[in-house]
Write a protein that binds this DNA or RNA. Structure first.
Length: 295
DNA sequence: GCGGTATGCCTAA
DNA sequence: TAGGCCTACCGCG
C-alpha cells in the first residue's frame, strides 16, 4: 500500500534491520546494477535509510545512494537470513546478518549521487511526516490557486506522501468536495488539513495500514476490521451517512467522495467536469447483510 | 489462460 | 489527456 506511510515505515524498519551492516546487494532480476556500489565480494555498508514523501533513499558508504520509488506495484518482503531463494522478479535483494529485504515491482530503483538525491527532494513539497516540514508554501499555493483541492493534495510538488486513499479520506473528514477550488478554502481549514494528513500518515506508519476511522486501538485490542478502515475510499456507501459513494476521474485518477457529506459549496468555473458515477467499492453498508463481493 | 484492476508517475502530443 | 511501465491477484470462460 505505497502511500507516504508505507515508505516511512520501510525506512524505519530497514534502518533498524540493516543499518550499519555490510550487506550483500544483488538484483536477481538483473534490472538493477549493483556495480559501482559493492566491493569485489558484492557487499556494501548501509549507513542510513531516509524517506521523503513516496521516495526512499538507502545511503551507503562513499555517499552512494540507492533511490527507490515503489510506484503502484512495488513491494518489500522481509525474511530471516539466510533467506529462501528470491523470486525471479526480485529487483533488489539486501542481505543483512539477521534479515533479508527483497524489493519487487518498483517504478524506480537506481544508484544516485548526493546531488541527484537533492535534486529529487527539491522537486517535492513538504512532507508532513518529516520534522523539517514547513507547510507554508503549500498553504500559499492553495490559497492563490483555482486548482481543485482534490488535485492539489495529490500533487507531490505541493505536499508529498498523500495518495489516492488519504486524499479521499482527508477531504471526507473535512467535508470538502474534491472539486473545491483551493482559493475557496479558509486558512483555518487548510491548517486543519495539514494536521489531519500528518496525524493519519503517522497512524499509518504505526499500524502499517491506512485507518481513518476509529481512534487508534489500545495495545492488544481488536484490529479495525477490513471494510471499516475508511469512510469513502473503496466503499460503495459512505460510512458516515450510508448514502452512495460517487467516483469520477480527476487528473486521470479516480476520486471517491460522498456528495451528501461533501457538497460542492462553490461552483468552479467551467462546470464541464466528468459526470460522477456510483462507486464499485468492495465494502457495502456497515450494518446489514454481508458485504457485497467485488464487482 | 486472459483481462481487468490497483494505494503512482513519467512522457509525448 | 492518453499511453506506457512496474507486478500480483482475482474472476471468468
Amino acid at each position: 500500500m505505497p502511500e507516504g506511510h508505507t515508505i516511512h515505515r520501510a525506512a524505519r524498519d530497514h534502518e533498524r534491520d540493516l543499518g550499519g551492516q555490510l550487506l550483500k546487494v544483488s538484483s536477481p532480476q538483473g534490472r538493477f546494477d549493483p556495480d559501482g556500489l559493492v566491493d569485489e565480494s558484492g557487499h556494501a555498508r548501509l549507513c542510513r535509510v531516509e524517506a521523503y514523501g513516496k521516495h526512499l533513499f538507502y545511503v551507503f558508504d562513499r555517499s552512494l545512494i540507492v533511490h527507490v520509488h515503489l510506484g503502484l506495484f512495488g513491494k518489500f518482503t522481509r525474511r530471516r537470513s539466510p533467506a529462501t531463494p528470491p523470486r525471479s522478479t526480485t529487483r533488489l535483494r539486501l542481505e543483512g546478518e539477521a534479515f533479508t529485504i527483497d524489493l519487487v515491482g518498483p517504478t524506480m530503483c537506481d544508484l544516485v549521487t548526493t546531488e541527484e538525491m537533492q535534486s529529487i527532494t527539491r522537486r517535492l513539497g513538504p512532507d508532513p511526516l518529516r520534522a523539517d516540514a514547513d507547510p507554508e508554501p503549500f498553504y500559499a499555493h492553495v490559497a492563490r490557486s483555482k486548482t481543485p483541492i482534490g488535485a492539489a493534495l495529490m500533487d507531490q510538488s505541493r505536499i508529498c506522501g498523500v495518495g489516492n486513499v488519504y486524499r479521499a479520506e482527508v477531504l471526507h473528514l473535512l467535508g470538502l468536495h474534491p472539486d473545491t477550488p483551493g482559493s475557496a478554502i479558509p486558512p483555518a481549514t487548510m491548517r486543519a488539513m495539514w494536521r489531519l494528513v500528518a496525524d493519519l500518515l503517522r497512524r499509518g506508519v504505526e499500524e502499517k495500514r491506512i485507518v481513518t476511522t476509529h481512534p487508534a486501538p489500545a495495545k492488544g485490542s481488536r484490529r479495525v476490521p477490513r471494510g471499516e478502515s475508511t469512510h469513502v475510499y473503496g466503499r460503495r456507501t459512505c460510512r458516515t451517512c450510508k448514502g452512495d459513494v460517487l467516483t469520477y476521474l480527476l487528473r486521470a485518477r479516480v476520486v471517491h467522495y460522498c456528495p451528501a457529506c461533501q457538497p460542492l459549496v462553490e461552483t468552479p468555473p467551467g462546470a464541464g467536469r466528468a459526470k460522477p458515477r456510483v462507486a464499485r467499492g468492495k465494502q457495502g453498508p456497515v450494518e446489514g447483510p454481508a458485504a457485497t463481493p467485488p464487482r
